[in-house]
Amino acid sequence: MIVIAFDFGIKKIGVAVGENITKKGRPLNVLNAHNGHPNWDTVKNLIQYWQPKFIIVGLPLNINGTKQKITNESEKFANLLKYKFNIVVKMHDERLTTVEAKSIIFKKNGFKGLKKEKIHSYAAKIILESWLNQYFFTI
């Protein structure tokens, strides 16, 4: 089963794709956004190409679990995905995924590898793998 994850941002939206058997994801390209709205045709093409069973959207929360300013925008984005593409969309806690993404990229490519495009997509990969590991059990 294929799953797509989004790391929502007002200017950049990270994207990753993965599947439930290996519980692994891979980062895809970052989508440029204007006030949190991507090019919806690009999103449509991603969904048509990968044909995911679910879409996961990162839920930005403060460390103590309270909502941030961007939390409502992320939830609106998730609702738009659900209604525009008639697909199941789940929100998943994304606390510290950006920190983890930066750490992974830095270990692989050093300081020069820390580009925002990579960070957002790696954060989406981390969100995806976290969701897969929490909700899909191996037999």
Rank of each mutant, 00 (worst) to 15 (best):
I56K: 01
K90W: 00
T71D: 10
N62M: 10
L81N: 05
K53A: 14
N79Q: 13
K84P: 01
G110A: 06
V57E: 02
I63V: 06
M91I: 04
A78Q: 00
N79S: 14
Y83S: 07
K82L: 04
I55V: 12
I55M: 13
N79E: 14
G110M: 11
Q68C: 02
F85R: 06
S103K: 13
T66I: 03
E73C: 04
N109E: 09
A78H: 00
N72L: 12
T97H: 01
I105Y: 10
F54T: 02
S74E: 08
V57W: 01
K102A: 08
K108S: 14
L80I: 11
K107N: 15
Y83Q: 06
T98I: 13
N62Y: 08
N62C: 04
L81M: 01
V89K: 03
F77E: 06
K102F: 05
T97L: 02
L96F: 13
K90P: 00
I105R: 07
S103C: 03
K102E: 13
K53P: 01
L96E: 10
I104W: 13
V57P: 00
K82W: 03
K82D: 05
V89R: 02
N72A: 14
N86C: 02
N86I: 01
K67C: 06
A78T: 07
E75S: 03
E73M: 15
S74I: 04
F77M: 08
S74C: 11
K82P: 05
I105E: 08
L96N: 10
T71E: 01
K76D: 07
K102P: 01
E94K: 14
N109W: 07
Q68E: 12
G110K: 08
Y83L: 06
I63W: 05
Q68T: 15
H92C: 12
I70H: 04
V99W: 12
H92E: 15
E75N: 00
P60V: 14
K69H: 09
T98P: 13
L96G: 01
T66M: 04
P52D: 09
V99S: 12
E73T: 08
F77Y: 02
E94A: 06
T98N: 13
V89A: 10
L81P: 12
K107Q: 15
G58D: 12
I63F: 08
T71P: 10
F106W: 09
P60M: 14
I56S: 12
L81S: 04
D93M: 09
T66A: 06
D93L: 14
F106Q: 08
L59P: 10
N86K: 06
M91V: 08
A101V: 06
K69M: 09
G58T: 12
I87L: 04
I55F: 09
T98Y: 01
S74G: 15
P60T: 12
F77R: 00
L61V: 14
P60I: 15
G58Q: 14
F77V: 11
